[in-house]
Nucleic acid binder design. Structure first.
Length: 414
RNA sequence: GGGGGAGUGCCCGAGUGGUUAAAGGGGGCGGACUGUAAAUCCGUUGGCGCAGCCUACGUAGGUUCAAAUCCUACCUCCCCCA
C-alpha cells in the first residue's frame, strides 16, 4: 500500500470496521488535500495508561491506526498520563487507587511495547498530554472551559444518566472532555479515533478546534469488542478477555471458545486480514465450510500477531492433540508442589489440587473430583479421600475440567 | 432542613422469631453431547480432613433459650416536601 492508493481505496480501508465516520465528506476532502499537497494527515489515538493488563479489545483502535499508517499518514499515540493521574470519569467503578507517576510510566511503557506489535511505533509520534496540560494556568483553563456550555456537556450519555439518577457527578469530571479536546488542538489533529463510548469526547475535540480557529478533526468510532462470552464488553475483571500477553496456547484456546456468531467481528477488529479476504472466508462458511476451521484461522491470525507464526503453529497443533484427540498436553505449565506438603511421601488428593492452584478451596476441590472433572495423566480421579504417593503424580499432568492442566514438579526447598 | 422507603450469597430476588448456609432465576464451575461454538440435559455453587464445627443476610450494640427476621444507634442509597 502507501501513498499511491487512490481516494476511494483509502476511504474504503479507513471506513472498514468503523461504526461512524463523522463527517465522511470531510474525511474525503482532507484526503484529497493530503494527496495534492503531499502532507500526511495527523491521526490521533489517546490511550489511558491506568492499567497494565491489555487485551485484544484495546488493540482494536490500534488496528485502525495501522490502516492510516499504511496509507502514509502521520499517526500519533497520546499517552494520557495527566488524565490518568486524576482518574477517568467513564470508569464508574468504585473508588480505585490513584496511580503513582511510576505506575503510569510503567503502564505507558507496556502499552507502547504491545502497540508495537500492531503499528510501527518507530514511525509513529508518541506524546504525553501532561506536556501541555500540566503547565496550564487557571486563567487558561477558564478560557478553555468557556468554550463549552453545561447543557452541552450534559448531552454526554453517562453524564446525563448519572445526573438524572442522582449519582454523584464531580465538577472536575466535566473537564475530561475539555482536556481530551485540548489534546486535539495542540496536535492540530485531522482525525481522532476511539471506541463508540468515546464519541462525545471525540466530538468535543471538533468543537474546541473550531472554536479556536482550527479545521475540525474528523471523528472515527469503532465498535467495542465483546469478550469471549460473546455478550459482555471485553474486560479482565469479567474474565472474558484475551490478554495481549497470554501465552500462545491459552490465547489460541480462548479464541476457539468464542461463540460462532461473533467470529466475524473478531476477524474484522482483531486480525490484520484485509476486509475482502474476511468476506471470502465468511462466504465459504455460508457455503458449508465448518465454522470451526474458520475459527481456527482466526486463532492462528491473532496468535501470530502477538507471538509469531511458529508459536501459532505450535498452539494449533497442541490444540488439536489435546481437544480433538484428547491427549495429554505436552507443554502444560509447570506447577511446583512444595516438598513440605508431602507427609511420608504422600499427599491427600484434595490437598494436592489446592496446592497446585487448581482449586481455590478444599471444598471446591472435592466438588470437582466428585463431578468427575479431575484426571492425572489421563486417568480419572474418583476418590476424594485417597492419599497419593508422589510417584503417582510427580512429573505428570493433572487436569481440572477441560481447559486447565498443570505438570507437577516437586519443589525440594523449604 | 422536614417526612417516607430500602440495604440478603458473584448478580437479581424470596424470606418478617426456631425445621434457613438461606426458595427461585441468572452467572460460574464440573459432567454428557459437540467443533473447548450454539442449543439441550444432569450435577454443583461460603469455609474447615467435613456424620461435626466456624463464618454469613449494610455496620455496631441490645432483647430472647433461639434473630436475616424484634429494639437502638450509625452508614449508604432511593422517593416526596423545603
Amino acid at each position: 500500500m502507501g501513498r499511491g492508493t487512490g481516494i476511494e481505496g483509502q476511504m474504503e480501508l479507513i471506513s472498514s470496521g468503523a461504526v461512524e465516520l463523522i463527517p465522511s465528506e470531510e474525511m474525503r476532502s482532507k484526503l484529497e488535500r493530503s494527496l495534492a499537497t503531499g502532507e500526511p494527515l495527523v491521526v490521533k489515538l489517546g490511550v489511558d495508561p491506568t492499567r497494565p493488563d491489555l487485551h485484544i479489545g484495546h488493540a482494536v483502535p490500534l488496528n485502525k491506526l495501522r490502516h492510516f499508517q499504511e496509507l502514509g499518514h502521520q499517526i500519533v499515540l497520546i499517552i494520557g498520563d495527566f488524565t490518568a493521574l486524576i482518574g477517568d470519569p467513564s470508569e464508574q467503578d468504585t473508588t480505585r487507587p490513584v496511580l503513582t507517576p511510576e505506575e503510569v510510566e510503567s503502564n505507558a511503557r507496556t502499552y507502547v511495547e504491545q502497540a508495537g506489535k500492531i503499528i510501527d511505533t518507530g514511525r509513529a509520534r508518541l506524546a504525553r498530554n501532561s506536556e501541555w496540560l500540566a503547565p496550564l494556568r487557571f486563567e487558561e483553563i477558564l478560557q478553555l472551559t468557556s468554550r463549552f456550555t453545561v447543557a452541552r456537556i450534559l448531552e454526554r450519555d453517562d453524564f446525563s444518566r448519572r445526573f438524572s439518577e442522582e449519582k454523584p457527578l464531580g465538577l472536575h469530571e466535566f473537564l475530561y472532555p475539555v482536556m481530551q479536546a485540548y489534546d486535539s488542538v495542540m496536535l492540530r489533529a485531522d482525525v481522532e479515533i476511539g471506541g463508540t463510548d468515546q464519541k462525545f469526547n471525540l466530538l468535543a475535540g471538533r468543537n474546541l478546534q473550531r472554536a479556536m480557529g482550527q479545521e475540525p478533526q474528523v471523528v472515527l468510532t469503532l465498535p467495542l469488542l465483546e469478550g469471549t462470552d460473546g455478550v459482555q464488553k471485553m474486560s479482565k475483571s469479567l474474565g472474558n478477555d484475551v490478554g495481549l500477553t497470554d501465552p500462545p496456547g491459552e490465547m489460541f484456546g480462548k479464541l476457539m471458545s468464542i461463540p460462532d456468531g461473533i467470529m466475524w467481528k473478531y476477524f474484522a477488529l482483531a486480525t490484520k486480514m484485509a476486509p475482502g479476504e474476511i468476506g471470502d472466508l465468511e462466504r465459504s462458511v455460508a457455503d458449508g465450510m465448518n465454522p470451526r476451521d474458520a475459527k481456527e484461522r482466526l486463532a492462528r491470525e491473532v496468535v501470530t500477531i502477538y507471538h509469531g507464526p511458529a508459536e501459532a503453529d505450535r498452539a494449533a497443533d497442541e490444540f488439536r492433540r489435546i481437544f480433538s484427540m484428547k491427549e495429554v498436553p505436552e507443554d502444560a505449565p509447570v506447577a511446583n508442589l512444595p516438598a513440605s506438603k508431602l507427609s511420608g511421601g504422600t499427599i491427600w488428593v484434595v490437598d494436592l489440587l489446592q496446592s497446585l492452584g487448581l482449586a481455590p478451596s478444599k471444598a471446591e476441590a472435592r466438588r470437582v473430583i466428585e463431578g468427575g472433572g479431575v484426571s492425572i495423566d489421563g486417568e480419572k480421579v474418583t476418590d476424594t479421600e485417597v492419599a497419593l504417593d508422589r510417584s503417582a503424580f510427580e512429573g505428570k499432568v493433572v487436569r481440572r475440567g477441560r481447559k486447565t492442566f498443570v505438570r507437577v514438579e516437586i519443589d525440594s526447598d523449604s
